[in-house]
């Protein structure tokens, strides 16, 4: 616990320091940009993600005076900013999911296909998931992907999205139900766990 909280306490300190010394903000970027970049690429593809990451950290820098220093870990704050910025690309995101659903070819992962390995889902599963994700209300998709891909806890997602934890829970549960229904068509014998993966 102490290791984590020490590391986490540093985000708030870095941000506080960057209010006097802007260059201290580089540390916030170094810590969080790799995860946020991967998350944004996964949702939007490389081009849009590059813009989103640049905008996220610039917006965060401009808002640093208002960062709540009582929050040692800046991760939910940064994911919240990134999520809001990604909403501008929601049509692109949905179109890409639809394309994957329809054709089985994923425009987002195409540049990375040489890395294909066992982690890649079966094609039918991918297409069904893509269809289900495209059909989700954006608030539900945000909550679900922040949990599964962003690795945020429910309270962190609540903080990132500015909604209550109960809302996050119900959005994730609804989204899961829809995904399960889509996947149900592939393997009706699949064992479904009711436990959230991250809590």
């Amino acid at each position: 616990m102490s290791d984590t909280s020490l590391a986490e306490a540093d985000d708030a300190s870095c941000i506080e320091r960057s209010r006097r010394e802007p260059e201290a903000f580089a540390e916030v970027f170094r810590r969080h940009a790799p995860d946020i970049k991967r998350y944004a690429v996964r949702r939007l593809g490389g081009d849009a993600a590059e813009d989103v990451v640049a905008e996220t950290f610039m917006a965060a820098f401009r808002q640093r005076d208002r960062y709540d220093l009582a929050r040692p870990n800046a991760r939910p704050w940064l994911y919240g900013i990134a999520t809001n910025l990604m909403r501008r690309h929601v049509r692109t995101e949905v179109q890409q999911w639809r394309l994957l659903e329809r054709t089985g070819t994923d425009p987002v992962t195409a540049p990375f296909t040489d890395r294909s390995d066992e982690r890649i889902s079966a094609e039918a599963t991918r297409r069904n998931l893509a269809g289900a994700l495209a059909a989700l209300p954006k608030g539900h998709r945000d909550a679900l992907l922040l949990v599964v891909w962003g690795g945020l806890s429910y309270p962190e997602v609540a903080q990132a999205l500015g909604v209550r934890v109960g809302t996050v829970r119900s959005r994730v549960n609804r989204a899961r139900k829809k995904l399960r229904a889509e996947l149900g068509g592939i393997n009706p014998m699949a064992i479904v766990s009711e436990e959230p993966v991250h809590e």
Binding site: E23, F25, A26, F29, R30, A33, P34, D35, K37, R38, V41, R42, E50, V53, A54, F57, M58, F61, D106, V108, T109, F112, T113, R115, S116, D117, R119, I120, S121, T125, R126, L129, A130, L144, V148, W149, R176, L179, R180, L183, A190, I191, V192, S193, P196, V197
Partner: peptide
Amino acid sequence: NEMSELERLRAEIPRPAAADLRAEEGRLM
């Protein structure tokens, strides 16, 4: 289950190394 399937989806996209983001960091700074 659907959560682990979702975790695999687009999992081939790598987490960039700090060095890969040096140019972006430079532009930000």
